[in-house]
């Protein structure tokens, strides 16, 4: 699988796919997309990078263990749900704020952080499975 063409293209492809996955994640609220699809795209990106350069390279690039990423995502989602409890509304109620950044109104919501959590869980879990499978029996 590690032909010259593939090895040359893989880093660009991976980078592009990850950027695209984040784009898909963020636009999901109004256009087709969302955390789940974005996570799948990012996971495929890491799979491609792994096939081209080996598992060790992906693990180095990820810095965290994929399952830690998934765990952090789950935590983020739970916390996003819990925030509403402090506002005195039922669990998982979406809360919105509209801060002005550089004169532009940016709508932010616990719904978005919840979706980011979904993204992270999907990326982490699937990457962790894929990497474990790609790893050769080195033990």
């Amino acid at each position: 699988m590690n032909t010259l063409i593939f090895r040359t293209v893989a880093p660009f492809l991976t980078a592009l796919m990850i950027v695209f996955s984040i784009f898909v994640l963020l636009r999901g609220h109004n256009e087709p997309g969302g955390g789940f699809i974005g996570g799948l795209i990012a996971a495929s990106a890491f799979a491609i990078y792994g096939i081209a350069y080996g598992v060790a390279a992906v693990r180095r690039a990820l810095w965290f263990h994929p399952l830690s990423i998934a765990g952090a995502g789950l935590m983020l989602s739970v916390v996003s749900g819990l925030i509403s409890a402090f506002a005195g509304v039922p669990f998982m109620t979406g809360l919105w704020i509209y801060p002005k950044l550089f004169g532009v109104e940016v709508p932010l919501a616990t719904v978005i952080s919840f979706d980011i959590g979904v993204y992270l869980v999907v990326v982490g879990s699937i990457t962790s499975i894929a990497l474990a499978l790609e790893e050769k029996d080195d033990a």
Binding site: H29, V111, V118
Partner: peptide
């Protein structure tokens, strides 16, 4: 506050 009904269901209505 979301136009994509599918995603709104996933992350909000049925969060």
């Amino acid at each position: 506050h979301g136009a994509n009904v599918v995603n709104v269901i996933i992350v909000d209505f049925r969060g």
